[in-house]
Amino acid sequence: MAQRKWQELPNNATFSILSRLGSIDVLMSAQLVCKSWYRVCKDPRMWRTIDMRNNGDPAMMDKLEDMCRAAVDRSDGQLEAIDVEHFGDSRLLKYISDRSRQLKRLRYAHCDYVADRALIAATAKFPLLEELDLTLCLFTEKFLINLGSRCPRLTTLKLNCQFYRDPDHTEAELNEEALAIAQNLPELRHLQIIGNPITNMGLEAILNGCRRLESLDLRRCLNLNLDGELGIRCIEEIAHVRLPHDSIEDYGYPADPAAPANPAIRRLNQADSLRLLGRLFLDVDRRDQRQEPREDVDGGGGDDDDEFDYNGYSSGDDSLGNNDFAYHD
């Protein structure tokens, strides 16, 4: 029976193989190879980490979202880390956060349309969150308010974007995010803000507010001038600092100032992004009127919830469960 040997590996070896694959590979092919692989692919432990990284093919986006929901379902509440790229939106975030109280790492990258409110509501449901990465997402600094109390274990924050120079911005505007970080996240250990418009004022606030920082990545923060004392202070106080002009070779996303292919990718100033998002999300318009996002921080009660109940999506239950096949061995 030499030809059957790979499917007869001990279960934990098969598990070890399949759990190294990205979730897309598992869902699109590995699970269908044979019965023993299928059985392993239904094990919730396989889905504690969901890795939906992909090449950004627009034709795949809807499928990827469905797959991601199915993967979240399979995790059966055990999800600890999820990596969503390109296709994530507010609804998906809501879907994840309603089912994943154990989440420790959330990466939502290149996801243009995530409303602040969705981020606030979701992070309120991730009490164990340790790492949050919103590289190249559109949001405003509002979701950072009280983030530290919603996610008291949050130690790693990545808010990378593509640097964008706008001479009309005031210094306060350029530092909105930096100041929100400094005020709301005193426990941060690792902060990566590649391409942020932060100026020396914002950096000083971060150094004063986030006293426990061990690493700080300031690459392509081209409004900073670290020639003077502030630069020295950074290097003296923080073990690992990456400076604005350090190489971004290992980063893998656009960061240098340039006109990005998709204007939505560039994180805009608040007014611009609200206008852009307003086309897609009712709640952005409503927040404009409300002007008091702080009050909504803890889950936004009752009637607000239906804003996220977009057609009551549920990923069709996969009734072909573990017990559907009889195993006699």
Partner: peptide, 18 residues
């Protein structure tokens, strides 16, 4: 396994669908 289709994986590892 990465990036392969179902049939390609079966082919690679000589696995027959059961």
């Amino acid at each position: 396994i990465r990036g392969k289709k179902v049939e390609e994986i079966r082919e690679t590892f000589k696995i027959k669908s059961d």
